[in-house]
Write a protein that binds this DNA or RNA. Structure first.
Length: 196
DNA sequence: CGCCGGATTCCG
DNA sequence: GGAATCCGGCGA
């Protein structure tokens, strides 16, 4: 069942952990795509120099993060990739959870076309291994881009996150990736993965 | 208005 | 290890 507003109106670190094992449901060009979240990172604007909204930095890009929990924050990175985040906590408390890895479970053929322009059974083991194990990769596979910024995951018919009852037992905790510029925040243990 | 660099990915 | 590639953020 669809995660409610209450789920997103909570502590960001708790949400980042709770999102592990949840399922992204997305209708893309008439196709149903489903993928299980296996890796996340938390970003908390009030205290986190790695967060785009740190220090009250409120711009066209970061505006969504100042909105209510449950909105989708999509931004472009390195001119060619997109990353998707789930906005968390109440309005005016800019925080989000970056989705860094998913495991495809439905609509795999459509995802293979979106990701590689190939049929899934044509993929090499290397491509399968690297199918959606990164924030840019999974957005490509799910057909997510800037147009999806601002989607309300609690209301949208096109996309939401579902609780299928899965409970993550062993969660691997580590430092976040590629935020060397973030001073003390670069050492925060805010990266969460389901152990394989 | 111009410059700088990134919550990445892929290839050699 | 380095290129691809472009827009957001910020200072002038």
């Amino acid at each position: 069942m669809r995660l409610s507003r209450e789920f997103y109106y909570r502590d960001t670190l708790q949400i980042a952990k709770d999102l592990l094992g949840k399922t992204i449901i997305r209708y893309h060009k008439q196709q149903l795509l489903k993928a299980i979240i296996v890796e996340t990172e938390a970003y908390i604007g009030k205290i986190d120099k790695a967060c785009h909204a740190y220090g009250g930095r409120r711009t066209n890009r970061t505006e969504v993060m100042f909105g209510k929990g449950g909105l989708l924050y999509v931004y472009q990175i390195y001119g060619m990739h997109f990353c998707m985040n789930v906005v968390t906590e109440e309005e005016e408390n800019p925080s989000a959870v970056l989705i860094r890895g998913v495991h495809p479970i439905e609509g795999i053929e459509s995802m293979a076309q979106l990701r590689y322009g190939q049929s899934y059974d044509e993929l090499t083991s290397y491509k399968i291994k690297n199918f959606s194990n990164g924030p840019g990769k999974l957005c490509r596979a799910l057909g997510i881009d800037k147009r999806d910024n601002g989607i309300d995951l609690c209301e949208s018919k096109m996309m939401y996150i579902s609780d299928t009852g899965f409970q993550a037992k062993d969660i691997h905790v580590s430092k976040r990736v590629n935020i060397d510029y973030a001073e003390e925040a670069k050492d925060f243990l805010w990266r969460f993965q389901i152990k394989p």
